[in-house]
Amino acid sequence: MLAVLRVATGLIFLWAFLDKMFALGWATPSGRGWIEGGSPTAGFLGSVSVGPFESVFNSWAGAAWADWLFMLGLLGIGLALVLGVALWPAAIAGALMLGFMWAAVWPPARALSDGSPSGSTNPFVNYHVVYAAVMFVLASTRAGDTWGLGRIWARVAPVGRFPWIR
């Protein structure tokens, strides 16, 4: 089950990467993909309209460095989880990315113009926190060894010397 959870979580990150890269029409409207000149961070970070970090996230929205870090993070975390390698670095990077995303939607009980809530109504635990916890569970249980390349990855010389990159 951990292998299924690892691959499923990895596919969530890879799907987000592919949708933002190619504007597959799900979260990213057609014609606004990164490959077409769109910004993968402009919409989300630019829409932060409340909270203690509003001005910080608004200033990052659409910045080239933020776009590159975000997209490389989605791709790297997704590939690491699907392949079952570098699960600790993926968990650390993923928790950092998801922590920023959690902070961008905090406080979570903001109402949209139509009165519907914009996400979780729990101020502490939402899907960003759960995904981060899942990645640490996957790394700490060596979930990459089942249906993944974790055992092969563990035999690579640098990984043997620095087990935290396993």
Rank of each mutant, 00 (worst) to 15 (best):
M101Y: 13
W65M: 05
G94P: 12
L98Y: 04
F70N: 08
S59R: 00
I35C: 01
G31M: 09
V130I: 10
V82H: 13
G160D: 00
S113T: 10
A80M: 08
R142I: 06
S47R: 06
A80H: 08
A23L: 09
A143Q: 06
Y131R: 08
S140G: 12
S120V: 01
L98M: 09
W147A: 13
S39G: 09
G144S: 11
I12A: 15
L79K: 04
P163K: 03
A109G: 06
A93I: 15
F136M: 11
A143P: 02
T41E: 07
P158F: 01
S30Q: 15
R6K: 13
L87F: 10
L81N: 14
G33S: 04
L74S: 14
A104Y: 06
F53E: 02
H128Q: 02
W147V: 04
A66D: 05
M135Y: 01
S30W: 13
N58C: 02
D19K: 05
A95M: 05
D67L: 07
G37L: 00
N126G: 03
W68D: 11
A3C: 04
M71T: 08
L11Q: 15
T9P: 00
P108S: 09
W153E: 05
V48M: 06
R6L: 12
F17Q: 14
I165W: 01
G150Q: 07
L79D: 02
T28F: 06
F13D: 09
R155N: 07
D114A: 02
A104F: 06
G84A: 02
N126P: 01
P117K: 00
I35W: 02
I35F: 00
A91K: 03
L79R: 07
G33D: 01
A66R: 05
T121A: 02
G73P: 13
V105E: 10
T9F: 04
F136N: 13
S120N: 00
A80W: 06
G94Y: 11
L69Q: 05
G38H: 07
P40R: 10
A109N: 06
S113V: 11
L72Y: 09
M21L: 13
I35S: 05
A16T: 15
V159F: 14
P107S: 12
P107V: 10
L11N: 14
F17P: 10
L24R: 14
A64R: 07
A157G: 07
G43Y: 03
S120C: 01
P89Q: 09
M21H: 03
P123H: 03
R32L: 09
L138W: 10
A63V: 09
L79P: 04
S59D: 00
M97R: 14
E54W: 11
V7K: 06
E36T: 08
M71V: 03
A93D: 11
F57W: 09
P123A: 07
A133C: 01
A23W: 14
A95Y: 01
P29H: 14
L112R: 04
V56T: 09
T28S: 03
G115P: 07
I92A: 09
A27N: 10
M101G: 05
V129A: 04
A109W: 02
M1E: 13
V137T: 07
F13G: 10
P29V: 12
P123Q: 10
A104G: 05
E36D: 07
T121W: 01
S30A: 15
W153Q: 02
P40S: 06
G78P: 12
R166F: 00
V85S: 05
L75G: 15
